[in-house]
């Protein structure tokens, strides 16, 4: 530690004025920031999902055999839209968009991805975000505002249909 003689005090009034002037200038600069919001943009370079496009599946037929057991999941493409099918109950299959809203990664490609039967949540294996049946994130970096797109599914326990 050094004493005051090693750290001479500055002339406070002069520096206070200087400090306030600088703060004022920066506050002025900050005031124009909201106006810059117009420079923010988001665009997609991929085609939007084709509304109404469908996919029929049978859990006894490849590539949908993983859906034969509760907890199984498969990746599918419906006219260019990447979809994830998850078997959550005896007569329930859920269909979500496959890109995790956290980092846009393909959840089906993550080795640790799974349906947690006990908790009733889909777990994205990249960064361990958890999603409820309605697609909303309940844990992990995708929460609290992230949400998977959910698509309509009909399923009788053996065969089903996904509609975008």
């Amino acid at each position: 530690m050094l004493n005051d003689s090693d750290h001479p005090r500055h002339s406070a009034p002069c520096h206070r004025r200087q400090f306030l002037t600088r703060m004022g200038a920066l506050a002025g600069a900050a005031a124009i920031l909201p106006g810059l919001g117009g420079c923010e943009t988001a665009e997609m370079h991929t085609a939007p999902p084709k509304k109404g496009a469908t996919l029929n599946f049978d859990v006894a037929v490849d590539p949908f055999k993983p859906l034969a057991a509760v907890g199984g999941f498969v990746a599918a493409d419906i006219e260019g839209t990447a979809v994830l099918l998850v078997r959550t109950a005896a007569k329930e299959v859920l269909a979500f968009s496959r890109a995790c809203p956290h980092a846009f990664l393909d959840m089906a490609a993550a080795p640790a991805s799974k349906y947690d039967v006990a908790k009733g949540v889909w777990v994205c294996g990249w960064h361990i975000s958890e999603f409820k049946a309605d697609g909303s994130a309940v844990a992990g970096p995708a929460s609290p505002s992230g949400k998977l797109d959910k698509f309509a599914v009909t399923f009788d326990g053996a065969k089903g249909k996904v509609t975008l």
């Binding site: 997609m44 890109a99 980092a103 846009f104 797109d149």
Partner: peptide, 16 residues
């Protein structure tokens, strides 16, 4: 954080 995506209404949804 993350990336924009297509919403179910056909509009681009930005990450919050």
């Amino acid at each position: 954080l993350g990336a924009p995506r297509w919403g179910s209404d056909g509009q681009v949804v930005e990450p919050p």
